[in-house]
Amino acid sequence: MKARQNGRGSNDAPHGCENESLSGRLLARLVPLNLRASGTEDGMTVVSARSSEWVRPVTQQDPASAIIEIDRVSQVFQTSARKDHVALSDISLRIEERAFVSILGPSGCGKSTLLYIVGGFVSPTSGAAKVKGQAIKGPGPDRGPVFQEFALFPWKTVLGNVMYGPRQQGIRAAEAEAQSRALIDMVGLKGYENFYPKELSGGMKQRVALARTLAYHPEVLLMDEPFGALDAHTRTRLQNDLLNIWERDRKTVLFVTHSVDEAVFLSDKVVMMSKSPGRIRQVIDIDLPRPRRRNELLLDPRYQKYVVDIERMFDESDEGGVPA
């Protein structure tokens, strides 16, 4: 297992190209350097050994192929006049394009808060988060959330919910409907287009929520314990379906969970967090082959070792405890 300590100040990572005023000639010289830098282990950024597969031809916008950069982010909530609750303390993290990254930790470690900061729903107390080199100032259609609570629009049918995003982006009704019907089919809800959310089970609602978010083509999926409210059976089925969908069209996914199995099963990289204050303990590359099939993976000793090792690490920590 390649577990590396995630040092402070991962902003030491190459970011020469964030400066957009750099001339093309200078960029051309810098790009190969950056590529090498992210490929070598500089101890600061954690790059999956297989990340080279996902590095697309380097463009000027994302020379290091990091789509999300979180730089020394802290979040303090004022719980009472005297006491502050430090939800996140000095978090730095780089997320590669097209990677499936899970944030794993016990409840109260601020993992959802971190996701909300990337979503632009919450502003950090200090530090900065960037998406594609741009500072995050608010929510945007480039980052699509999927919440544990589904948050569907109950006055809209399944089709109405899925069409909402495309329609908002000005896509013509007929075209939006055709796309949405295809997505509803993809998440396995063909025939339920005209149902209202109240008529659906929890698992079906989460399928609709996923389709609704995919419908406006976000570059990053932000999933906030999406299967946390579902029963074990439904949960497993949705994990399988999510992997199938993701392996077809790899988007960057930031996936918050407190389930070790789920994190290892789905992810390329697991970010382990500890609580009070919320910090990154470790970032672990999950080097398991894809496409992953549940029945094969559960028998795979490498998978089992990841799960056991991560659970042991949570056990050893006196602050975190085992995530449920």
């Binding site: 979503g119 632009g120 729903f121 608010g138 929510p139 945007g140 259609p141 980052r143 699509g144 959330p145 919440f147 609570e149 948050a151 569907l152 629009f153 109950p154 006055w155 909402y164 995003g165 908002q168 982006q169 609704r212 978010t213 406006y216 976000p218």
Partner: peptide, 29 residues
Amino acid sequence: VEEKMLWSGAAMGLLPVQRLVRIVLPAAL
């Protein structure tokens, strides 16, 4: 009205006034 519902709308690009008319109003209807 659930905060996450408004966030979902915001991520789709709805401005605050649009969220009030197109999410808060129907949700509270």
